[in-house]
């Protein structure tokens, strides 16, 4: 019996489908639980969630469609993410290249890094008012630290021989930064960007739950909660998960294509 199972588990065709086993079990368990509980306000049936997902362009409770809200969230996260990365990368390079910058900046970084971005919500609202400004602030803050620390790591991982070789070939400081240190650190910076995007994506959903928001996936979820539309909440969560997964996949693709040298370099 155990042998038979082993054969099935390791067999040629089954091998490619193994990843699907647990998700399918999960869906089955969900459906069984939903039937047993028999209360759509606690756990909706899969079909009701699926029917929300099947009509991504239909307006939901007058707040716009899933696609509309997803694109609003994506725009916000992109702006916040880019602002955070655009500040963190140059600062990280400066900290990695010049010791005095690191000595100067590091204490502040250490103090602010453990503060969750969402703890800034009240201040963000006070400074930037309700709207895009405060959300971008929160998201940028979430993206900033992982990019900064990875950039710093990346710059430190740049081999001294690369820098010295470039110097003997006539590189001045600016050329060193642009043509040696930045490309040498880029694979590590990219890892930071991937981590940062994950955090930024969490931040946007949370930021959209701030008072005064009127669109975005986070808002949609909270709004649906007020109307007890649990199937919309779950559908929204699935969309959030899928978008996060999709973007991470894209970033990984770039990594494996452009930065292969990091693994292959001995």
């Amino acid at each position: 019996m155990r042998e038979g199972f082993g054969k099935l588990w390791n067999g040629g065709g089954a091998r490619n489908l193994r990843w699907a086993v647990l998700p399918i079990l999960f869906l089955v368990a969900w459906e069984i639980a939903a039937i047993l509980i028999d209360n759509p306000f606690i756990l909706p049936r899969i079909e009701s969630v699926a029917s929300v997902l099947a009509t991504p362009f239909a307006s939901i409770l007058g707040t716009g469609s899933l696609v509309h809200n997803a694109s609003v969230s994506l725009q916000r996260v992109l702006v916040g993410f880019l602002v955070g990365a655009a500040l963190a990368i140059p600062l990280g390079i400066a900290m990695g290249r010049w010791e005095f910058v690191e000595e100067l900046v590091n204490p502040l970084v250490q103090i602010f890094r453990p503060v969750p971005p969402l703890a800034w919500v009240p201040l963000a609202l006070a400074w930037f008012r309700i709207g895009l400004g405060s959300m971008v602030f929160i998201i940028a803050l979430g993206a900033f630290f992982p990019v900064l620390l990875n950039t710093l790591d990346g710059v430190r991982s740049v081999k001294r021989t690369w820098i010295e070789a470039a110097m003997t070939l006539g590189a001045r400081e600016r050329q060193l930064l642009v043509r040696v240190i930045l490309p040498g650190a880029l694979p590590t910076i990219w890892t930071g960007l991937r981590v940062a995007f994950g955090i930024a994506w969490m931040c946007v959903v949370a930021a959209e739950m701030m008072p005064g928001t009127s669109s975005g996936l986070g808002y949609l979820i909270l709004y649906s909660y007020n109307f007890s539309q649990v199937q919309v909440i779950v559908a929204g969560m699935i969309v959030i998960g899928l978008i996060g997964l999709g973007i991470d996949f894209c970033l990984r693709q770039v990594e494996s294509r452009w930065f292969r040298w990091r693994e292959l370099e001995r």
């Binding site: 021989t161 010295e164 070789a165 470039a166 003997t168 070939l169 040498g184 880029l186 040298w261 990091r262």
Partner: peptide, 27 residues
């Protein structure tokens, strides 16, 4: 350091993100 004095290092100093031809044309 000056390009008048070319240097070849003991450990590999090529830029791994550049193709061979782009390494050579770096200077």
């Amino acid at each position: 350091p000056t390009p008048r004095l070319g240097m070849i290092f003991q450990d590999y100093s090529l830029f791994p993100w550049r193709r061979v031809i782009d390494n050579i044309s770096f200077g």
